[in-house]
Each structure stands twice: as C-alpha cells, then as structure tokens.
Amino acid sequence: MHTGSDILDSGVFVRAADLLFDAAVSFPDLEFLDFGSGFKVAYKEDDVTTDVEELGKVITERFHSFCKEYGRELELWFEPGKFLVSESGALLVNVNVIKQTTATVFAGVNSGQNHLIRPMFYDSYHHIINISNPTGTPRIYSVVGYICETDTFAVDRKLNKVREGDTLAILNAGAYGFTMSNNYNSRLRPAEVLVLDGKPHLIRKRETMDDITRNMVEI
C-alpha cells in the first residue's frame, strides 16, 4: 500500500488500513499485507509525531479481526525509512563566514544543498545547534551554504552566538541526506561516520577530485 510520507496520526492510518482490508478480501492467496510507511518523527520541538505504540495497538486489533475474516493469519509488513534513521543522523558543518547585511546576519557554512537538499527542495525544517558554543547568547541567523544557488538551511534561526570556525550540527540528517547528495558546483560529497557503542567508525570516505573526473572522457 502506498500513502505518502509522514502519516500524522493513527486515525489516518486506520482509514487506509480499512481500505486495504476491503481490497484484500478479493485476493485469496495472500501471504502478507504491506502497509508501506510514513511514520512521522520530530524535526521541531513541538512537532506531532506518530505514536507507534498506540498505532501498534489499534492496527494489531484490526489486523487480527481481518485475518479471522480472511481465514488465515497473514504477515504484516512495513517499509520504514525515516522512522528508523532520521533522528540517528546529523550533518556537521563548519562556519566559514559571518556576513552582516542591512537586515540579516548570515552564517555561511562549508556545505550546502549538494549535501542536504531537504530544506531547499521540500522547505523542510531541520533543527540546528551550535556545538562549539553551547552556552553562547542566542542570536538570530540565516544559515546558508556555499553553493551558488538558493542554498538556505534556515532563516531567522535562533542559535547560540555563532563565530567563524564554529561547528553546527544540522539534525534529522539520517534520512534523505547523503542519499540525495550530489556534486553540484563540482563539490565533493562528505564522509560518513557510524557511531556504535560510543566508538566512531568511518563508513564512507570523503570524495576526492578523482570522483569528480572519474567518468569524464577527454577528447
């Protein structure tokens, strides 16, 4: 079943499930029903997230009564992406420049839409923290990337005072971050590190110039 990403509440899910149950009775040889996914995780402090425990209760009950009616116990499948990995990941970037214009203070970082395109592509909110200055006085910034194109990670965002050289962490970067990255502006893709039980492991090397030119054919 396909619904769309980010299903807010169990009510919507149950409506979709009921439609799927109605359709499923016409197929006598089923082994499983796949409910897709769309569990919502928190990107902002006040975000409403999917209560999977509540959803589990409601769907389990409905699924059992469907299986009873169907005559066989089927498997129940989900295809989660964001739910499993979004909150686990962050994109760490360094602040190259602070630029004050007449109305804005920009923090320009060593990354951009080439590494994390969700804010620009989907207008998604990604929470940002200044990990170099966690107790600094909060100020208002626009966090922008180094790509020559609309490249704004955050507008009018309150961050602990940002200085050139500080490292910012862009949160919820575990899902649709690296996999949607590209080489625009001939920039290199970042490295990836997986932390397991407190130990960091390099799991993808930073690209080099060779990766940019590898498939170019000189004539």
Binding site: E53, G56, E75, W77, P80, G81, L84, V85, F178, T179
Partner: peptide, 20 residues
Amino acid sequence: AFSGVKLKVKYALKACNNIN
C-alpha cells in the same frame, strides 16, 4: 509496538544506503 502480529520490517534503503 507490533509484537502481537507477525511483523516484517522492510527498511527503505533510499533513506540511507550505506552498506554498514
């Protein structure tokens, strides 16, 4: 959350595809 049914989770690797 779904321990009451025969659950199969199929991770959508488009979200993050690192082999590890």
